[in-house]
Design a protein around this nucleic acid. Structure first.
Lengths: 200, 200, 200, 200
DNA sequence: CTCTAACCGAGACGGTACGTCACGTCTTGAG
DNA sequence: CTCAAGACGTGACGTACCGTCTCGGTTAGAG
């Protein structure tokens, strides 16, 4: 079970020269993981990452351009894993489970903190925005859940609209406020969506 | 009509020494406004702000600690002004008007870009998070609208929950995706809320 | 007995406006004295002097241009007082007394430390050099001694040459070396001069 | 023939990482040389040196702590070269040659100006004092001359005393006065020393 | 079994922003 | 007109990190 995305070997082309060191790659990814928790995103530096990983500075730059890029690679797999919602009997239970997962992910999980940091950076860095949108694990996970319960909810809109209606009210207060009561919010939100999307 | 928050006279205490230069204060606030549009938040520097304002570096640091602080002071009034929703006949029209205002604010207005940049910074800088939350013009504006239509919507939750349900689905795709169709989303969102919150 | 040069009132012209505050002047001079000992010449600043004196910064600049100027005014009188050589029976005793006075002045006395600091500053600041030369208390004191013993020493050169021969060998090692044995040096120096300048 | 002290190869240890740039080192030393003449010691700044040398600021700080340290390295070799006294037939000629060399060095040579600036700085900066004393080219040169003529002068004291008697009367007026007539002073000084130190 | 090419660590390089400090000037109200 | 206070524009300080470069040394497949 690969810890990091890309752990599967990428190419078989038998390139000449010394092959890329998997040890160095993992050291960098782990270093980023650790530093994010210890110092936070803003205080992380490329220099610090290289030193913590015991790796040359050039080696980092050879494979990644920015700390955002490394962080995405380092946390993508974790994020995806943590956002796999368990299968439930009812649509309501599905929604509640997923939203609770989501709230926990964003407020507690290291991968979730990374996601928020990246989402933040994306607001003033177009390149990060591009990277993040292409690999957004959150939207992906939401879609899985929605697909699962769509048969029961005939009036559910598709695609991005449904995702936004589902995820927005939970994620917004987490990004913009402090100390939100998720539990209540989540139940209300689920009921609201069921009423709007439901069969009748 | 004051352009910047704090334009109202502050104190009459007759402090000793040379009084603070209003010209310098305004020059800095305008410089931040300009630089945000020209270079973006990330590329803005305290040095650059001081130089653009034609002001000493120390003068900037004397009154503000970070570029986030300046940006908040520079855009707070504009943000508040731009988010004043017009009074409409029906609750639905009120909601749609406000959400359209909000979407336009976040995607087009300089003050809105500033808000997004600050919200982004808040994800990895606790101090900015504190500042932003205390002065959040968006939540404030949402509350005004909600208070106005509350009489018609007996099942509307109060406070933060209602704000999140109203604002979240619109703001989330703007922060996390590209090229969203706001118009459709907004109408759906308004109807969804009316159905959930409505009298009968 | 005035503590500082210039303590005597300078003008009687009955100028209009508020007269100069003698209290402020003395506070500045004392502050410079204190700071020289506490922090050394290099660490002293105009700002620090004003604060220590409890005086406005402008008040300092109104009356002095540089810290060197203040220091000269603050120490000139002390320096002159400390370099008054006692009258002795023989030329040899006169010389030895004066040279010992000189060595003590330069290595121990606050005024002597100030003199060395100023002499140092004069090496890379022409303005200080000018001020110092015009008021040099050391040369002045040496001349007094030499005049006193000149009758006994028919071959003594006059003016600057004699001063240099007398003072140079003592002051040079103090400026350019560490931990010199002055006592021996001084006796040798006195004998050397007597032999050279002496009657027969 | 090495232009700067330290031009001799330092070590062969094969340290890891990119080796120090000799070009940068020389650029800094030349910049200091130039700036000393153009602006004087007091007006020289670390920033100015780096810019003149076309070198990063950090590169300067990496190898030197203060401008004094750079100046010592930049002028030590020149100073030593310029103070090599020619061999003469008589002790008197030796002394006169050396003292003339010395006077010229201190009043005309760039290296001599540097020496005076450093000697000045040493009066109020203990660290500079330490550096200067350890490498003092002037004392060194004086000792060479004195050793050469010592056989002829049986009563010459040794070490520091002799150096002070030789050098002090010449250097003192240069430091503390303006426009001295060196030629006369030097001949008198030489005769005085010969009389005192001479055989009989 | 050498050759070649790309990798690796280390760390110096030219830049540039940081936040602080002192400079010397100015602008208040009070004496 | 002076005084204390303190804000002003200027510019150097020493530090940190940027992304690039240049070393010696390693590690593979190709000849």
């Amino acid at each position: 079970m690969p810890r990091y995305s890309g752990d599967v070997i990428r190419s078989e082309a038998a390139t000449p020269g010394r092959p890329r060191s998997e040890a160095a790659r993992l050291a960098v990814l782990h270093a980023v993981d650790d530093l994010l928790l210890e110092q936070g995103y803003a205080a992380m530096t490329m220099k610090g990452i290289a030193e913590r990983a015991g790796v040359g500075r050039q080696t980092v730059y050879r494979w990644w351009s920015t700390k955002a890029e490394i962080l995405i690679e380092a946390t993508a797999t974790d994020a995806r894993d943590e956002l796999v919602a368990p299968v439930r009997r009812s649509a309501r239970a599905e929604l509640i489970s997923f939203l609770e997962l989501l709230a926990r992910f964003l407020t507690v999980s290291p991968a979730g903190l990374a996601y928020r940091a990246l989402l933040g950076e994306a607001q003033h860095d177009a390149e990060v925005a591009g990277l993040l949108i292409d690999t957004d694990p959150l939207t992906e996970a939401a879609r899985v859940v929605l697909d699962r319960i769509r048969p029961e909810l005939s009036r559910m809109p598709d695609d991005d609209l449904a995702v936004a209606e589902l995820v927005g009210p939970v994620i917004y207060p987490i990004l913009a406020r402090r100390g939100v009561d998720h539990a209540t919010m989540i139940r209300r939100q689920a009921d609201s969506l069921l009423a709007r999307w439901g069969r009748t």
